Simulated assay, not measured.
Amino acid sequence: MKIAAIQMRSGMDPDANLAALEPMIAEAAAAGASYVLTPEVTMIFAENREGLAKVAAPFEGHPQLARVGALAQQYGIHIHIGSLAVPLEDGRFANRSVLFGPDGAIVATYDKIHLFDADIAGLNAYKESATYRGGEAAVTAPLGDFTLGFSICYDMRFPRLYNGLANAGATLIAVPAAFTVPTGQAHWEVLSRARAIETGSYVIAAAQGGQHENGRATYGHSIVIDPWGRIVAQLAHDEPGVLLADIMPDLVTEVRGRIPALANARDFTLPDALQD
């Protein structure tokens, strides 16, 4: 199976972001990709809740998603919008991933579970939960000979989610992301490889890259990792582009047979001090 990760430099205008995305989807489809993943915040990359509120469309009848569904049907492929902001009733947003099937219909959606709330000494506090409401359910979906597991960006730092996805049958795990440059340089590749090794799964990580309209800078370096932890393909830059890779379901079976970590896992108790 041939898959593609699309690297973008999304801005504040959903139509402009869609216009940048369309030719890259066409390029991936022409190269034979049957599954295409885009980054986190594909349609709008705003800095805060107020910025999103000005331009984020409701999920029902969403104009850019309708066009992506039409493209999936046109090319007869799965298109996975890594995430977009969806307005919720409490004034916040869901950071929602949307998978379209080859018929153009939505196959599955996933709302990002883990939100980055941090107050770091010497830096301004960053509270993602002020803008987004975290999801509560892990999601998998059939994808040809694979089962796709869903995650988004910060989720990558939580192995329990990936272990759960693998135990639910996931053999290919998607990580659409918008990593900052410092964290990307330090952690992007090692976390991608670790999640693949731990689960014996393929990992496809499609990234935002470069200097964005909202003032943020993201790392890029979209990557595909095999179940043994090897880099199958990578964009060694932060420019927009299409990353193609061939993946094989038999390799998942082989690696999980050689290192049956999922099968060998056991429950355990914790000392009282750690439970409190």
Rank of each mutant, 00 (worst) to 15 (best):
A31R: 13
G69V: 14
H237R: 01
S97H: 04
T131N: 07
Q234Y: 11
R160K: 15
D276R: 14
N163F: 12
A138H: 05
I247S: 03
I106Q: 08
L21C: 05
R256P: 02
T42V: 08
F146V: 14
A20H: 06
I113M: 01
A206P: 13
F100Y: 12
T38D: 10
V98H: 03
V224S: 10
R96E: 09
D15T: 06
A137C: 09
I223M: 08
G241A: 05
D272T: 05
L84A: 07
Q211N: 07
D145P: 14
G257F: 03
A174G: 02
I77W: 02
P271G: 07
F158L: 06
F93S: 07
Q74L: 15
A29T: 04
V232C: 12
L270R: 03
A46K: 02
D119Y: 06
V175W: 05
A273P: 00
Q208P: 07
D276W: 05
G135M: 01
I120R: 04
T218H: 13
D145N: 12
L244T: 07
Q7R: 15
F150G: 08
T147Y: 09
F93A: 06
P142L: 10
R193P: 13
T180W: 06
N95M: 02
A138T: 09
Q74Y: 14
E136H: 00
P87A: 06
G82F: 12
G104S: 04
I197D: 03
Q64D: 12
N214Y: 12
P159V: 04
P271L: 07
A245H: 02
G122C: 13
D238Q: 06
T171F: 11
Y202W: 07
V41E: 14
G76H: 07
C153K: 00
N163D: 08
A108G: 04
A121M: 12
P142A: 13
D238M: 05
I44P: 11
H212D: 13
Q73V: 01
L99M: 12
I106K: 03
A94M: 01
D250W: 02
F150H: 13
N17H: 04
V55E: 10
G122N: 13
D272C: 00
D145W: 10
A245C: 04
L143G: 09
L65N: 08
I25A: 00
G209R: 09
P102F: 02
N214K: 13
N124D: 15
E213N: 06
I225E: 14
I77T: 08
I223F: 06
G76P: 15
A273C: 04
A206W: 00
R258H: 05
I3Y: 05
R160D: 15
I79E: 15
A138P: 03
G101E: 10
T183Y: 11
L274W: 03
S192N: 15
A130W: 14
P176Q: 11
G32N: 07
Y110G: 01
H62F: 09
N124P: 11
